[in-house]
Design a protein around this nucleic acid. Structure first.
Lengths: 347, 347
DNA sequence: CTGAAAGCGCTAACAG
DNA sequence: CTGTTAGCGCTTTCAG
């Protein structure tokens, strides 16, 4: 049911001044603290007074002021999340689930994009901290030392979701990018591919890309394949980048029999480029992606990819933060959500 | 430059108590209001005291408390945004730009997903309002009357971005879904297509879908084409839905020579399904999309679509809200960002 | 189950 | 350019 809220039935509203809890209290013939309790824990207030208060809220159109409430209680019921960009649907999938979980538990999401530099990230995180969120979620991988210290000293639960690495700030919910990448390359090798190209974002500026490249190199090394430098390319986000990358790779070595692009969007872009050039996939080249975004199961042929439970990362992060705030004793500090190789038609 | 923040150089921090502005003030030998000013408007404080204050902040690791500041100043510097879901990349594209613009102007974004019912939307908006955001952005189309009243009485700038319609709550930044849809169908007609199918989300529950279907019907009516009921299908989000929709359409009338899917993801899904069935696009059927998301320029063949400047909607919404908060006299109440038909290879 | 008093940590308003 | 005073609108704490 949707509650009313006349907003015109009370003197305060009529004078253009915001209705305060005190106005509601006076109208209901109780004190403000009783209104406060009726709002937050209705079960501890007698039925009669609760009814009177509800009635008063209705007729005044009162909207509580959480800013004041947060200051008094030292609790904001806000979780801040900082991700590189909302435009990347892998991050978005995590945020979708996190927001839904938080909302269901009575929390709100303050969302920010960290941008491309450590400075911008630091500035954002430090101003977010000034809002006194009850918890923090991060999808970054390496922070300026000052940023890390800020977070450590904030005294709130912090969850990181980018990679299963050592030495997290506080809690961690993720998967091993190294293992996942290696597993996909092993799959390619099992399929008889040997000359395998690799495309990812820049390993020098990105922990996950570094882990994935290491996984790629590790699998090839154990199979005795000597990797050539021109088999590896760096790409930023986007279909176009995937197309360009595979084109460059093929130009450098046209005997490549597979390309692993660490991102489904890149992989789909590579597939489309192959179609444009009349190359058969997987006949001429196999193509593999990463993340198992919706597109990889939709293209023709469907893309083999590494499935990662992005929504689960978001949901668990929210649950762990809330559990800690509620004083749960047994909140895990490190959760490996795992991954799965999804073999489809492109390999 | 990244500011330090030792957090261990001061008694307050050492006692585990949060450092307050008063601690900084005492250390710098000034009053709290001077610290407050140095933080918000450094130029009105003398160089000497500013230096002393910066020094004190540095050595104490002070993080300002915006919750207290917001309560005192009645300004939160927060803009709330409510969208149906972050998973839809059209909305995400708007939010990306809005967040970046807000951040650059010193505002933060409180983001929420409205879910599928009016009740959940109302509950979210009313709790968001309790956080006293300075402005509100909405990408919905029809609200419960109580929701609308809540927003109208909030006394803050509100921008809606879903559709260029009459009677907005406050401000509007969008485009005409009706015109855009009609323009695309006219394009299809010019290409000689007559038997044109249409796929969108449910017009009964969605203003935009309704406007788009009307545009479709209008263009066909003026061309003297008699639309058959089985030419229209409803689909929810996703590649799979687009594939299923075109399959159903073709099963109902295999003489369809074009299908307009009001969403690029649906259109791409339809294209992939055609490839799977060995249908030539546009030879056997033309396919058109909506939104001009990145994928439509990437597939093979590339998809003709309606270009909509999603980032501009977000950027303008943020700018209009901030301009109003700064008391600008000339903030437009209605901005038509327009659209463009992008003709590519699929039609 | 209800209330009184005392803040939460800042900034507005006015003064100097 | 800097300071004093008085709140902002709630919730905590302690009583009853």
């Amino acid at each position: 049911m949707i509650a009313g809220g006349a907003a015109q039935g009370h003197e305060a509203a009529e004078r253009g001044r915001a209705v305060r809890m005190e106005d509601v209290a006076r109208l209901a013939g109780v004190s403000t603290i009783t209104v406060s309790r009726a709002l937050r824990r209705p079960e501890i207030v007698s039925e009669t007074t609760r009814k009177a208060i509800e009635q008063a809220i209705e007729s005044t159109g009162y909207v509580p002021n959480y800013v004041a409430g947060s200051l008094a209680s030292q609790r904001t019921h806000v979780v801040a999340a900082v991700i590189p960009t909302i435009a990347n649907s892998a991050f978005a999938a995590t945020i979708v689930a996190m927001e839904a979980t938080l909302q269901a538990k009575g929390f709100h999401l303050l969302l920010g994009q960290s941008g491309t530099t450590r400075e911008s990230e630091h500035a954002l995180i430090s101003t977010f901290l000034a809002r006194r969120p009850d918890g923090f979620f991060l999808h970054g991988d390496r922070y300026a030392p000052q940023t890390r210290r800020l977070l450590e000293n904030a005294g709130i639960p912090v969850v990181e979701g980018a990679n299963l690495r050592d030495n997290p700030i506080d809690m961690l919910v993720s998967f091993s990018n190294f293992d996942a990448s290696r597993a996909m390359v092993r799959h390619l090798l099992e399929r008889g591919r040997r000359r395998i190209g690799f495309v990812s974002s820049d390993p020098r500026s990105n922990d996950r890309a570094r882990a994935r490249r290491k996984g790629y190199l590790s699998a090839l090394a154990e199979a005795g394949v000597v990797v050539r430098n021109e088999w590896m390319r760096v790409a930023t986000l986007g279909f176009g980048q995937g197309g360009e990358a595979i084109a460059a790779l093929l130009a450098a070595d046209r005997r490549l029999d597979a390309v692993f692009l660490a991102g489904d969007v890149l992989a789909a872009g590579a597939l489309f480029e192959c179609q444009r050039r009349g190359l058969r996939v997987p006949g001429d080249v196999a193509i593999a992606g990463f993340d198992d975004q919706e597109i990889s199961a939709a293209t023709c042929p469907r893309l083999s990819t590494v499935h990662v439970p992005r929504p689960e990362i978001g949901r668990l992060a929210a649950e762990m933060i809330v559990a800690r705030l509620q004083g749960s004793a047994e909140v895990p500090r490190r959760v490996d959500v795992g991954f799965e190789i999804r073999v489809r038609e492109s390999t």
